[in-house]
């Protein structure tokens, strides 16, 4: 299973430098894959699963991931669950987190205007090359070439979870059945690792997720939702483009 990653740097830097920055991001993402993938038998996660590595001896990154998954399990009432499929699978957190870290690295290395889009989950900073904010479309859940919202952001993250792309792959842990009720959930906020996990959890909740999303809006995570029957909802401060 691969995920496409698109990177755009809009900084006024020499081409060679931009190339280095992009190479560094790619290196980091491949490193994350090697260390955390459940498809790579020698990854830290798989060694932890097999008991060859204890949590206490795990790398700082892995310990961070484990703690974050535990926090998210509580914050989402158990709807985000890294142990849902049985053995530990923190992939649902690792993807957003790795992009969040990649963006922070870019910023530290001098790129303050960029976005990274990993499979539809986006972390952006600064401005578009034209000087305005980054305009990001949210894919229409039935018409792949259309947008259901257009947002404008300078610094922040946008994550979307939906049932339209890969079918019933999100399971409601309360029922053990595929999540129903919501077709597409987008969460916008400061941190991509949280936005991504929140979007997935809300999708798993189904329609009660609308209430839960209203609650996290008070923590700075705005949302836009389309239900299975085509109703659209958004939180009050969703940064819609004008």
């Amino acid at each position: 299973m691969g995920t496409a990653v698109s990177i755009e740097l809009a900084d006024d830097l020499p081409a060679a430098r931009l190339g280095e920055l992009i190479a560094d991001v790619c290196r980091w993402l491949h490193e994350v894959d090697a260390r955390f993938s459940t498809y790579q038998p020698e990854s830290e996660v798989m060694r932890l699963r097999r008991g060859e590595l204890t949590a206490a001896d795990a790398s700082e990154d892995l310990r961070h991931v484990l703690n974050a998954c535990a926090d998210l399990w509580r914050a989402t009432d158990g709807y985000f669950d890294a142990y849902a499929g049985g053995p530990l699978d923190p992939s649902g957190y690792v993807k957003g987190w790795s992009v969040e870290v990649a963006s922070a690295r870019l910023a530290a290395a001098g790129s303050t205007n960029h976005y990274i889009n990993a499979g539809g989950d986006i972390r952006m900073r600064g401005h578009h090359p034209d000087g305005g904010p980054w305009r990001v479309g949210i894919r229409h859940p039935w018409e792949a070439d259309k947008l259901s919202w257009v947002l404008a952001l300078t610094d922040g993250a946008i994550a979307t979870s939906g049932t339209y792309e890969r079918g019933d792959h999100v399971i409601n842990p309360r029922t053990g059945k595929p999540a129903q009720g919501l077709r597409s959930v987008t969460v916008v906020g400061p941190d991509l690792s949280l936005a991504d996990a929140y979007a997935t959890a809300a999708l798993a909740m189904g329609e009660p997720g609308l209430k839960w999303l209203a609650k996290i809006a008070t923590d700075g995570y705005e949302s836009a939702v389309v239900t299975d029957d085509g109703r659209a909802f958004s939180s009050a401060n969703l940064p819609a483009a004008v």
Binding site: I7, E8, I22, F36, W73, G92, S161, R174
Partner: peptide, 30 residues
């Protein structure tokens, strides 16, 4: 500016949440 699109094998494509009801709380350090 510069742009690049790369297709990698980034982990985490599988956002599977849940399956079991009798979920234990996340283990050890968590």
């Amino acid at each position: 500016r510069s742009t690049a699109a790369a297709v990698g094998t980034l982990t985490g494509a599988a956002l599977i949440v849940g399956v079991r009801l009798s979920v234990q709380p996340p283990s050890a350090p968590a």
